[in-house]
Amino acid sequence: MVALLERGRSFFNIYFPGLIACCTVALAAVFLEEHYDGPAMLYALLLGIAFNFLSESDRTTKGIEIASKSILRIGVGLLGLRISFDQIAGLGWGPAVLMLAAIAATILFGWGVARLTKSRGAFGVLTGGAVGICGASAALAISAVLPGHKDAERDTIYTIVTVTALSTVAMILYPMMAGWLGLSESDTGIFLGGTIHDVAQVVGAGYSVSENTGDVATVIKLMRVALLIPVVLVIALLFRGQVGEGAASRLPVPLFAIGFVCLMALNNMMDLPTQITGFFVDLSRWCIILAVAALGMKTSFKSLVASGSVPFLLILGETVFLAVFVLGGMLLLG
């Protein structure tokens, strides 16, 4: 009992300050949404960025970190309770094929541009995979199977910082771009889910447009996330013999995606009470708003500038390429 109390006290001291800061920002975002009719996700992001200094404080950094990762995964996993098989069937095979082609094309584009600019081809694969699949998580997974060198850690950090910042910008700009292009709610969801790098920003951007757009964007994004392990294994085979033993064993498994699929299957196979599904869907929304607030706190444009121009320009080019590729594919698929 004493040991349990000590663990609880330790958790409280380490995580509570950061978590309460994120909760405060999330509550403020929802208040603004209810009184000024704007999207809570965007309010949470912008307010979070204003409190970026908290992510540099030892008292709050751990709580912000757990909110931006663990709580986000819980929120996305619980979204499975609001997705139906009919929605997935309605998308058809076209978007799945388009996502696979977009990921492969973006990685090849990154590799080609890196070689043309006399950078390491592996760096282009790293950035292309991060842009094409799921941002920071993909960067960490791919870096584990790429050849090691003295700047490997720096390249990974540069990629994560740049991808996160550009994904944050995309969360704000892409919904407006979709409206300007006159895309339907479903097509907007495909575009957002197929082009924005990180899960949090995809969910935030999608549900800032509408519930239907958010549902479609989440399904499309999780298609990309599900391709992480196969893509990383292919990269590991291509670079086999150039990495240390055990690298592949450190590949992260996207458990939240598995939870999403399991809850979606449960909701579609069983007639769950609306009170239960409603509670967890609301909990999911709060988790995601909390995570977006934490994500804003972690976004530092100063760090982006300090990371240098080469990774920024390369990832910016890959981001634009991915957006154009997905839009072009959507036009071809009709």
Rank of each mutant, 00 (worst) to 15 (best):
V125D: 03
V161D: 08
E153S: 13
F123V: 14
G129W: 09
G121C: 06
K150L: 12
A101F: 14
H149Y: 13
L126H: 07
G128H: 09
A102P: 11
D151L: 14
I133Y: 04
A101V: 14
W111C: 06
L126G: 04
V113K: 02
D155R: 03
V97C: 11
L146W: 02
I107P: 11
T127I: 12
I142H: 00
K118W: 10
K150V: 14
T106I: 03
G94F: 12
F109R: 02
T159V: 03
D155W: 12
T156N: 06
E153F: 04
I157C: 07
W111G: 00
G110R: 05
P147D: 10
A102H: 11
A144R: 02
G135E: 04
L98T: 07
G132H: 09
A130Q: 09
G135I: 08
G110D: 03
A104V: 15
V113R: 03
R154G: 03
T117K: 13
G135S: 07
S137D: 01
L116F: 13
Y158R: 15
A101H: 07
G94Q: 14
V97Q: 04
T156C: 10
A141R: 00
D151Y: 12
E153T: 09
G124A: 09
H149R: 13
G94K: 13
G121L: 07
I103D: 04
L140F: 11
L140H: 05
A122E: 15
I133S: 04
A102D: 10
L126F: 09
A138E: 00
V131G: 07
F109G: 00
W93Q: 03
A122P: 02
H149E: 13
G129P: 08
P95D: 12
A136Q: 03
D155C: 11
I142F: 05
A102F: 10
A138R: 01
A96V: 15
L126K: 04
A96P: 02
G128W: 10
P95Q: 10
S137C: 06
I157M: 13
I157P: 01
L140A: 09
L98D: 06
L100T: 14
V113M: 14
P95V: 12
V125F: 03
G121M: 07
A139I: 00
V113Y: 01
V125G: 07
K150H: 14
A136N: 07
G121I: 09
A152H: 15
R115N: 05
A122Y: 10
L146S: 00
A105P: 00
G132S: 10
I157S: 15
K118D: 13
A144M: 04
P147Q: 05
G124R: 08
T159N: 14
P95H: 11
L116M: 15
V125H: 06
A114W: 05
L140K: 08
S119H: 13
A114P: 01
L140Y: 11
A114R: 02
G110E: 04
D151F: 12
S137E: 01
W93N: 08
G132Q: 09
A114H: 02
V113C: 10
Y158N: 15
L98Q: 11
A138L: 09
K150Q: 15
A101C: 14
G121P: 10
K150S: 15
I107N: 08
T127K: 01
I160P: 00
L126N: 06
I103F: 03
E153N: 12
T156Y: 02
I160Y: 01
S137F: 08
G148Q: 15
G148A: 14
H149T: 10
V161P: 00
